[in-house]
Design a protein around this nucleic acid. Structure first.
Lengths: 343, 343
DNA sequence: GTGAAAGCGCTAACAC
DNA sequence: GTGTTAGCGCTTTCAC
């Protein structure tokens, strides 16, 4: 464990940690050979491999990935950007992304851009400065300037949770417009006629909302009442929103909510007011969070394969980082309406 | 924008990105001067600052933090380790930690250790390899080997969400034993006598649970019935747990749940079975997630200042990284029981 | 206030 | 299969 201390010249001190040089010296090989033993063991002889492995365990050597990344221009770091981590919607994606990356030897750096987007450019610069092997943009709308910098940096980008007409690079998502349409048709089919929508004010939710309203109109239904609440959506906002809705004139027999939490709020408020779900009013959520299936009544909601999105995003980036050609760059992962008791 | 291409020698290619050298050349100064203009602008003349700033904006230069970190042995990267990101308990902490760090120019790397702890050592090595300026351990129990490596690496460590007798380094948390005691006393004071507990199987929840049971015994109450469910806890497990509890003999007039989600499950199952909360049964949660206050009935729960924990952890690490002495290394941030309608 | 030199710890490129 | 050399892009040290 006690290696010779380097000659105390007037030079720099370094971190004091065990380096590959130390390992190589102990194993009696050149540094590059030790490097090969670590990174591409099939390139060295069994004898060398044994000596190096031995030296590593004796010294407790942990490779410095900063140095490795600098030398190889491959940081094995991937950045994920979400509006905020505390809205539970993207959690599953972040979780599966982190796991899928870790399995392949990559780490994840998390950035929160906020819903307003004013912190976005600063965050992007902080990320680009780390030279990640890829960036995963989750549910984010990026400024033109940010887009330009991302492109200029030449870092692989995966946009998720949306289907934009002009993706920056790669994309795995679904159509929010189709979600809005599908839910309107679904409720119409279930015999509901007086629709309402409670929606967060973020751009994607608004798109679902607009499509929902337009489709209801096409189906000949009366105008859809709507309440917009600030993102991130919460149970409380859901309760307040239903109260707002009921304060207005006109009845409502179905509410489409832009998140499951909002839907839980609407259902809670309905129960308090003696409105029976689904008898008097149907409720549809969005996200299919883990709790949705076990509420009473169980919540009908739009299921998004959040984990699959994360895994696919990891796949895209790792493939690119390791030089494999990515032929399909845009994947529509779709969605499904999970019908349960609330409708 | 178009800089002279470097002479095409047989040497390495690099990343092709704009470097500090490019900026310096364009500004007509030495690289080190450009570096000072970026990092310590007060050290250079106004004239130089202007020229460098100008060159930066013309080239779109973004400093390479891998190189900077290697040279300065300060990565400005902080690692956070959680059991899993998708249990909503630690979200607030992770969010405030990320934000507080970003404000100070640090980025956060996220690692998920899982509840079982077998992935822990591999994760720790991956983290140490990045030479972060600090590691925040959130609700994690670490192996002796992991502890040793962390110490050996000399990286500042902040443990959170617990109060261990022998902290590795710094700590900001609260006593799970005190939580268990306080809730038992609280329910006793409210006149409840037949207590039960529904708890996740992770070590900290079990400690709260044990203290809850012991205190109930000290107060002369009948034996506390308990149901243990696998972590992470969910609404579904809460419903099932109450069903289990009611299937046994003996009545229950209060249930302490190890998470708010579990409590929501218990309340949901109670409602379905016609058990009135709080009349027939009191329910107490843990965590005070955002939805707790707005449930019907509103949930009495143990409030933990998750955001304060995150901010303090950031403070600890940044202080240490920037060479400020940290005098108090252990902070008990406490907790409070928020009394609402469910009791 | 500014600069030259010398690394930080690692790996790509080219030998042998 | 193994070694030599020369950097990756930045900052520290020391000098002016």
């Amino acid at each position: 464990m006690s290696l010779e201390t380097p000659s105390p010249r007037r030079s720099r001190r370094g971190s004091g940690a065990v380096t590959l040089h130390d390992v190589a010296r102990l194993a009696g090989v050149a540094p590059i050979t030790a490097s090969r033993a670590v990174n591409t063991p099939q390139q060295v002889s069994a004898e060398v491999l044994r000596k190096v492995t031995d030296a590593i365990s004796r010294t407790g050597y942990v490779p410095n990935r900063l140095a490795g990344g600098l030398a190889s221009t491959r940081s094995r770091l991937v950045a994920a950007v979400v509006p905020t981590i505390s809205g539970p919607v993207f959690l599953e994606t972040v979780q599966s992304l982190t796991e899928a990356l870790a399995e392949r030897g990559y780490q994840m750096m998390l950035g929160q851009a906020g819903y307003s987007g004013n912190r976005e450019d600063a965050l992007l610069d902080a990320i680009i400065g780390r030279r990640p092997d890829g960036i995963v943009l989750t549910g984010i709308l990026h400024s033109a300037e940010g887009r330009r910098r991302l492109l200029a940096a030449g870092i692989p980008v995966v946009e998720t949770w949306d289907l934009t007409p002009t993706p920056i690079d790669m994309l795995v998502g679904f159509s929010h417009i189709e979600v809005g349409r599908a839910v309107a048709r679904f409720l119409h089919r279930k015999g509901r006629r007086r629709l309402a929508v409670v929606s967060g004010d973020d751009e994607r939710a608004q798109r679902r909302c607009a499509a929902f309203q337009a489709t209801a109109a096409e189906l000949g239904l009366p105008a859809v009442r709507s309440v917009v609440v600030p993102a991130p959506t919460t149970l409380k906002r859901g309760r307040e929103a239903l109260a707002d809705l009921l304060a207005g004139r006109g009845r409502v027999d179905a509410v489409f909510c832009s998140s499951d939490l909002l839907a839980l709020g609407v259902m809670t408020e309905a129960r308090v007011r003696g409105i029976e779900v689904p008898k008097n009013m149907a409720v549809v959520g969005f996200g299919d969070l883990e709790f949705a299936a076990d509420l009473a009544p169980a919540l009908t909601t739009v299921h998004i394969k959040g984990a699959a999105i994360g895994r696919q995003a990891a796949q895209f980036i790792v493939d690119r980082a390791e030089g494999r050609s990515v032929d399909t760059r845009v994947i529509d992962i779709g969605f499904s309406i999970v019908e349960r008791d609330s409708t």
